[in-house]
Every structure is written in structure tokens, then in C-alpha cells.
Amino acid sequence: MTITAHHISYWIGQQPILHKLSFTIGPGEVTVVLGQNGAGKSSFLKILSGEQKPTIGQVMLDNHDLHKTPLPQLATMRAVLSQQYAMGLAFSCAEIVMMGRYPHYRSHPSADDHRIVMESMEEMQVQHLVQRPYQALSGGEQQRVQMARVLAQLRDPVSRMPGSTRKLLLLDEPTSSMDVLYQQLCLSKARALSRQGYTVVVILHDLNLAAQFADTILLLKRGCLIKSGKAREVLKPSSIAEAYGMEVEVLEPENYDFPVLVPASHAIQPALIRS
């Protein structure tokens, strides 16, 4: 699916959050959203998810207004991983992942649904946690279970071949509590899905993960889109300095097809030049 928007703005009360954003997010690639805390990344994702409506302008999903798509229909093609979950009632991990299948069945899950739940859990390597209560897990494990739920939500049962590729995956800091191995696993999975035709949008803080996994980067600062384009074009010292107020050096290690960003050596002592 292609998401397009032209000059959309978003206000909360009198507070401008996003200002005149124009963008096209295409299928088949990973689009990473970068920016300082409070730059409007999460609000941006909320608009893409259909949760919030832009105050001015509209977001088009292929040729339809995203915010006029009925919720149940949207739920079968768009999944969102949020930053935090506050589970009030205790559920087992399998029950949580099964919630991802809720948009697909009425009252009883089919054998397909059960199989998809198990496969999604295996993909995120949480199959050993099936019966464990969600609350008893560590932060990273919880994040992997939620990711498995999100994957299960977008999956088409194999019986209905060929699976639709009109899928939108939105991840808000999916790796924030994961260790390095699972960070790689999670984002590799996101990239693999994009190669199957999914549209994938990820908010990240780690510039190096962005450098490794992003095809396209949108760089936000105080609600404005200050740069967008191919990852390598955006990850330049000048744009990073503008967005984060921090000097970086972009290194190109041998045998790697992505750059590595480190704090500029002359500025390591007061690495922060934020104003």
C-alpha cells in the first residue's frame, strides 16, 4: 500500500504538533522515522494508523481516505506496535498473540488462526512462553510477544492464496527493551516483510539500526519534515546536526553496505550541543 499526504497539519488544542507534512511512503521498503524526543514521531504514527485525524488535509491509503476506512476493515490490513502496554488483567502470552487474530474470526478461532499464532510466536522466538502469564515476562520478552501479536494480525491464512500484500505495519520503537540479538531479529523480520510487499514504517532512536535497516528515512524536527529520502542521503552529519543538535561522524566500514554513525571525535567531551 502507498500512503500519501500533502501538506497535512495536526494540532492538539492550540498546540501545533505536526506542520505541513508532505510525503509518500511506498510498499516494499522500510521507512524509518527519526527525530528528537517530542519531534512528533509518535503523533505522526498515530495519524498513519488512523487513530488521529490530521487537523488539516487528508492521508490517502492507495486511493482511499485512510480516515474514512471502517475500523474492522483497517484492522485486517494495518497493525500497530505501540511503545507501551499497561495490561490491567492477566493474560497468557498465547492469548495475547491470539488477540491479533480477533479481526479475522467471529467467535471461535479456526485451526488456521491457532497455527498462525504459533508461527508468529516462533518467528519472534517466544514459543516457549506460550502458557506463561504476560505480566511475569521481562520488558524485552513482552515486546517480542506484542510483536508476535502484531505479526499474527497481518497474516493471511495460507488457504486463501495468494495472500494479499496490501498490508501496513507500523512500529513505534519496537526494539526499545530488546537486547542486541533480538533488535536484529525484530528489524530483520520487518525488512523481510517489506520485501514481501508490506509497507513498513518504524520509529527508531538508534541511528545505527536506522542506517542498517532503513531504505527511506523521514527526519522530523519540531513537527516539520526537515529531510526525507534514501537512508544514505539523510544520514549525513549536517542533517543529523540539524535534527538532533549533535555532531556525528559517518564512518564507512569495509565490507558493510551501510554506514556507522558515531559522535564526532572533537565533540566527545560535550557531545551535546543542543540549544
Binding site: A75, V80, Y85, Y102
Partner: peptide, 11 residues
């Protein structure tokens, strides 16, 4: 139980 917003995401 996942949260109000998450429920909305599930349609």
C-alpha cells in the same frame, strides 16, 4: 485489556 487504543487498532 491491551488498552483502549490497541483495541481500536484491532478493529
Amino acid at each position: 485489556a491491551l488498552g483502549e487504543q490497541e483495541a481500536a487498532y484491532l478493529g
